[in-house]
């Protein structure tokens, strides 16, 4: 564990708390992509299967349970409790275009051709693109509630912090994780447009609005 990794994890944790806070206080999941949230459930479940057969640390264990639990809870809130506030007609990104290629990539790029390793690779690739339905939705509506943009910013910053963490680990431990690094850089890259608007508008107190 190092400073960058910890900041990344805390940012990830914060993003989920902001998301749940947004749903609870506005009593609505307006502006959120159900598809993106469903992809995160798939990401966490396929990645954290090792919970059942491998002990890393209490920190690791608690965080994994939290990510699985909170993503399932979010899905439940969106699907049932605040269902009427979700508008499927603007959440139209085809997730087959994400899941299929990620599955193929995982079959090609993995550290061992075993079920758990292929699923782990799949989760890494899928996480890198899971935000696309949400960003696509944002692009369509052209605006977002401020709280939703805070959620997206925290979620984007999380993987960005993992990049210096990987560099640090390379120099201190001499290890690399090429699959996570390539996917993590791609994942962070997808947020660049969003970050630009977030830091130049929302952080200056303006509303998040995309140019027409």
């Amino acid at each position: 564990m190092n400073f960058f990794r910890l900041l990344g994890d805390l940012s990830h944790l914060a993003s989920i708390l902001i998301l749940l806070h947004k749903i609870k206080t506005t009593r609505s999941c307006r502006g959120l992509s159900f598809k993106t949230q469903a992809l995160y459930v798939a990401v966490f479940i396929t990645r954290y299967l090792d919970l059942t057969y491998r002990w890393v640390s209490l920190y690791n264990f608690v965080m994994k349970l939290f990510f699985i639990g909170s993503s399932c809870a979010t899905l439940y809130l969106m699907r049932y409790k605040y269902c009427p506030t979700h508008d499927p007609s603007i959440d139209t990104f085809k997730i087959e275009y994400l899941v299929g290629p990620c599955a193929i990539l995982a079959l090609i790029f993995n550290y061992k051709f075993s079920v758990s390793e292929v699923l782990w690779s799949f989760s890494i690739f899928l996480e890198s693109v899971a935000i696309l339905p949400q960003l696509f939705m944002l692009q369509r509506t052209g605006e977002a509630e401020t709280i939703t943009t805070h959620y997206l910013a925290a979620l984007g910053i999380y993987r960005a912090f993992y990049i210096p963490n990987w560099i640090y680990r390379y120099f201190t431990e001499g290890v690399v994780d090429p699959i996570a690094i390539v996917a993590g850089i791609a994942q962070t890259g997808l947020y660049l447009d969003f970050f630009y608007v977030y830091f130049t508008k929302v952080m200056q107190g303006e509303k998040f609005e995309l140019p027409a």
């Binding site: 690791n60 550290y111 001499g174 290890v175 690399v176 090429p178």
Partner: peptide, 10 residues
Amino acid sequence: LPVVTEKDEL
């Protein structure tokens, strides 16, 4: 380069 074998990241 040695690849991380025991995955400890989230």
